[in-house]
Design a protein around this nucleic acid. Sequence first.
DNA 1: ACCTGAACACCGTTCAAGT
DNA 2: ACCTGAACACCGTTCAAGT
Lengths: 224, 224
Amino acid sequence: MTTGPEPQRSAGRPRTAVLSPERILAAAFDLADVRGADFTLAALARNLEVRPSALHHYFASKDDLIAGMRGQLARRIGNHHFETLPWHEAIFSWARAYRLTIGAHPGIIAALATLPVDDEPESIVDYERIAAAMQRDGYPEHRIVPAIIAIESFVIGSALDSLAPEDNLRPVDNADIAPHLTRAEHAGRAYAAKQGRSLNDETFEFGLAALITGLRAGGTGHGA
Amino acid sequence: MTTGPEPQRSAGRPRTAVLSPERILAAAFDLADVRGADFTLAALARNLEVRPSALHHYFASKDDLIAGMRGQLARRIGNHHFETLPWHEAIFSWARAYRLTIGAHPGIIAALATLPVDDEPESIVDYERIAAAMQRDGYPEHRIVPAIIAIESFVIGSALDSLAPEDNLRPVDNADIAPHLTRAEHAGRAYAAKQGRSLNDETFEFGLAALITGLRAGGTGHGA
DNA sequence: ACCTGAACACCGTTCAAGT
DNA sequence: ACCTGAACACCGTTCAAGT
C-alpha cells in the first residue's frame, strides 16, 4: 500500500456511491475552517476516507474544487434587501456577511481571492442586484462598477487582515522605535473594547462606513 | 543524480561563496515577478544554479525567505513626505506605491498578505511615520490605527483584484442575466479609457479617494 | 460509473559527506 | 563555512484495474 494506512474499502465500484459533489464540498469547508490546516486534496481525501484520486472523479482539479466552493459561498452571502433598501444601506449588511463568510474559512481565503473568476453565475447575480440598486438610486453609471469593486477589495483585504494575529501591528514590543503608533494602538484598542468589539471588527466597521461615505460623496477627495 | 540535470559544481565548499542573502532575495523577486510562475524553492534554486538544500543555509524555511522579501518591500515603498505634507495628501502616493510594489510580484502577493507579520521593523517604521503625521494633524487618536489598517486592507485587496483578468466581472458573456451590470461595466470602462487608465487603476484611484474622504469625515456615515 | 492502487513528476526540509 | 547528494514525507494528477 502506497498512500493510506487503512484500506477501508476494496477496489472496485462500491454498491452505493460514497462521494458526491455536495459531500466533498461540505468536507472541504470543514477542512478550510480549521485555521492553519493544510488545505490539500490529500487531507480532504483522508477526512472522507477515500483515496485522493477518487476526488478527481467529481472535480477535475484542485482549482476546480475551489471554484465550486466559491460558488457556494456566493450563495451563502444572500440577498440583503437591495430591492427594498437604498444601496448604501443594504451594502452594509452585504459587506459584513461577505467578510464573515470568507473570513470563516481561513485555510482558503488566499486561494479564493487569487483564483480567477471565469464566469461565475453566482457572483454575477450578486453584483447585478447591487448594480441595479445603485442605478435605481441615481448613482453615476460610470462609477457603479468601480464602487462595487472598491468595496469588494476592502472586504477581501479586511478578511485577510483578520487572519493575522490580533496584535498585528505589535508596537507594544516596539514602544521605543514607534511611540506614536504605540499610543494610537492603545487608544484604538481601548475604544474598540468600549464598543464591545475586537480591534479587527471595529476597524472594519469604521473603514466600511468611511468608504461608503466617500463613495456617496463621489470620491472627489484629493489627488484624483 | 536525483534532482538536477546539470551537476554544475562538485560537492564541497566552493572557493568563493556562490550565494548570499541579497543574491537569493534578488532572484526570488525575479521569480515572483513572473506571473503564473510557481514560486517554489526548487524553481528558485534552478535559477540560481544550486541545489534546493543550499538555500536553507541562508533562510531557514520558505516562510523565512518570504519574510525577508517583505522586509525589502517595505523599504522600497519609501517615505512619501509624511513629515512635510498633511497625512491625507501624503497617504495617496504612499498607497499608490504600496499597491504597485506588491502588485509587481503577482507570484507572491497571497503569501505576503497571508503570512503573519511578527515584529517587522521595516513596516513598524512605516506605520510610525503615518501615525505621527495623523497625530500632528489632529486626527482622533483612537481612529488612527483603524484608519491605517483600513487603507492597508483596501490596498491589499486592490492588489489582489488587479491579479484577476482585466475582464473580471465578465458581464459581457452575461448580458442577458445581468443587464444593469453590463451597462455599468461598459460605462465604467469607457470612462476609464477617457482618463487614459485601465479599469483597475481607475477603480483604485476612485476607491482610494473615496476612502480618504470618508476617513477624514470621521466615517460616521451609516450603520456604525 | 465509481472507487482503489500504482506510478509520475514534483514539493520543502533534513542531514551526512565533501572541500 | 558552504555547497552537493541522498533521503524522507509529503503533494496533485493520471490511469489502469477492479467491481
